[in-house]
Amino acid sequence: MSNHRIDTDENKPLMARHRGYLCLAGYLDYRVALTWQQKLMAARRDRPDLADVLLLLEHPPVYTLGQGASEAYLKFSADAAPFPVHRIERGGEVTYHGPGQLVGYPILNLRRYRMDLHWYLRQLEEVIIQTLATYDLSAYRVPGLTGVWLEGHKLAAIGIKVSRWITMHGFALNVCPDLSHFGAIVPCGITDKPVGSLAQFRPGITIADVQPHLIAAFTDIFGIDWQTLSLSELATRE
């Protein structure tokens, strides 16, 4: 399967450019990141003129379940969880976040792009596919599933929430995480496709290596002109 963009209306680049804030938040507790997302989304529901935001970060080890996720996909009891577990308002089943995983939370006003959730999910996948293409890796989609795969391994998970066309949650790209932590769950409820990492295909790769390529791909696909801010600077713009 090709890593090249399919030339359809769904994948054509957007012509208009938009301003946005890029926040490289580093190593951030999951609950703190969630609170930031909720705050940014709420502000944009009230003031849709506010600039879009992309938070890029890593989390300490944590498991999250989507709003309707089944606890049957947890291989541990609630009182013996190896890491914190949070049920949140995104779609999808259980997943793991942890060090070595590049997590992106776009807070976008889809009225500026396309008011189509299917289209938005495909664009997030395309960001990952183009990022991996910079390493001469032909990542691909699997029909009927959300995410990005490489040689039979799922390298990126995607789960979103959209309210009044403002997005939150987003994607997680496994760059060089400890994959054994996925062993305590059935990731995304998929039993027949293993989770993988970029480090399996490009040994020694780091988050710092990948992040600029992902930013470039996101910029190209969504047409955003970024101003890079810290979390404290971002707070003053809201």
Rank of each mutant, 00 (worst) to 15 (best):
P60K: 12
I6T: 10
L173H: 04
L132T: 01
L198A: 09
P187R: 08
S230T: 15
G223K: 11
Y63C: 06
L34C: 04
L198F: 10
E58N: 11
A157K: 14
A25E: 08
A139D: 12
I207C: 12
A139M: 10
V53N: 05
T228C: 13
D46K: 13
A216E: 09
P82K: 06
A72M: 04
S138A: 15
L40R: 05
H153M: 05
C188Q: 02
V53Y: 05
P203Q: 03
G100S: 13
F222S: 15
T146Y: 01
H118R: 15
F182Q: 06
R17G: 00
A69E: 02
A42T: 07
M1E: 11
A216R: 15
F76Q: 10
A235V: 08
S180G: 08
F83C: 10
F218D: 07
I160V: 14
I207E: 08
L214F: 12
E93H: 06
D220H: 14
C188T: 09
R19Y: 12
V85F: 14
N174G: 04
I221C: 12
S2G: 13
T35P: 00
T228W: 12
P60V: 04
A43V: 00
I88N: 01
L137H: 07
L57W: 08
P106F: 10
A81P: 00
L150P: 02
H18Q: 14
I224R: 14
G183C: 00
G223Y: 05
L155M: 11
Y27R: 11
N3S: 15
E238D: 04
R141T: 04
G68L: 10
G68R: 15
V210D: 06
A208G: 05
E89F: 00
D116S: 05
W165H: 11
V94H: 08
M168S: 08
S163I: 07
I215F: 14
R122Q: 14
S197F: 00
E125Y: 08
Y120C: 01
F182C: 01
H97R: 14
H4T: 09
G91Y: 01
A184C: 13
R31S: 14
N174A: 07
G159T: 02
I128E: 00
G144D: 03
L54Y: 10
R45E: 12
V195M: 14
T131R: 09
G98P: 07
T64P: 03
S180D: 15
F76W: 04
A156Y: 07
I224P: 15
Y120M: 04
H181F: 04
I160H: 00
I190P: 01
F222P: 09
S2H: 13
A72N: 13
I205T: 09
D178C: 06
G223V: 13
P61L: 02
M115H: 03
A208K: 12
E238H: 06
P99V: 06
A199W: 05
N3Q: 09
R164S: 08
L108A: 07
A42Y: 00
S180I: 00
L65C: 08
G147A: 06
P203L: 04
R90D: 02
P61T: 02
G152N: 03
T134K: 14
L173C: 02
V94F: 01
L108Q: 13
F83N: 02
W119E: 11
G92W: 01
P177K: 13
M15D: 12
Y96V: 03
P203C: 05
N174I: 00
M1L: 12
R141F: 08
P48V: 06
D7E: 14
